[in-house]
Nucleic acid binder design. Structure first.
Length: 221
DNA sequence: ATCCCGAGGG
DNA sequence: CCCTCTGGAT
């Protein structure tokens, strides 16, 4: 009973947070630029530990030369590395992009698969990347995208005590209605970038402060 | 737990 | 200098 009641309270608070975020960022969408599911997958792999702004800076040149899975699969590794270098982790990312595209060509007919298990079988693709591709590429809501922002804000907002992204995702999936899973993530990310920043969270201007156990109240001492 | 890794902010 | 940015594999 206690647990059920507690979960209900938390879930209600999660919904209030989501409602506030929807009001705050009505137009929030995936901020990566892409034309096809393959390009979305590649851009998402590139977005690891890197701002989406920087990803969008390299992908136009990348996709102009290697627009699809087969051209990426057959590209000289060094050309890929040079094109994506500024996004960091460029050797791993180039290897993973190429490996993923080779498998997409050889096993999935050159198209990004729409099943979670098949996506997870691609090198460099785990739940975060798979969730982004399924949601924004195909409109399939399979889980909650947990990136560095979702992880940080979920903790600060008291929506989870976990630190493992998989467990955080499980908590958020319990707290939120399935159709809103990606809506929540995308807006949390916007809020994490603009207000609830990693270094210096701007609690004074935060519209979620009244719902947040971590908000700093500066008037008390 | 550690490694991969560039770029920008403080 | 240190920290952070839509992580994933070993």
């Amino acid at each position: 009973m206690n647990i059920t009641r507690k979960k209900t309270t938390q879930s209600k608070r999660a919904l209030e947070i989501l409602a506030t975020l929807e009001h705050l960022y009505p137009e929030a969408t995936c901020s990566l630029t892409y034309e096809t599911p393959v390009q979305l997958l590649v851009a998402t792999i590139l977005s690891a530990q890197c701002t989406d702004e920087r990803v969008n800076q390299v992908t136009p040149n990348l996709f102009a030369r290697f627009p699809d899975a087969s051209s990426l699969a057959n590209a000289p590794r060094e050309d890929l590395e040079i094109l994506i270098r500024s996004t960091g982790f460029y050797r791993n990312k180039a290897k993973n992009i190429q490996g993923a595209c080779q498998k997409i060509v050889s096993e999935f007919g050159g198209e990004v698969p729409q099943q979670m298990e098949k996506l997870l079988s691609l090198p460099g693709v785990a739940r975060k990347t798979a969730n982004v591709v399924l949601a924004h590429g195909f409109g399939i809501i399979q889980g909650v995208t947990v990136d560095t922002h979702v992880k940080r804000l979920s903790g600060r907002l008291g929506l989870t005590k976990e630190t493992d992204p998989i467990k955080i995702e499980r908590d958020l999936m319990t707290l939120l209605p399935q159709p809103d899973w990606e809506n929540f993530s995308i807006r949390i990310i916007y809020h994490g970038r603009a207000v609830c920043k990693a270094r210096k969270p701007d609690c004074d201007r935060c519209k979620l402060a009244h719902l947040c156990p971590s908000a700093e109240i500066k008037s008390t001492r």
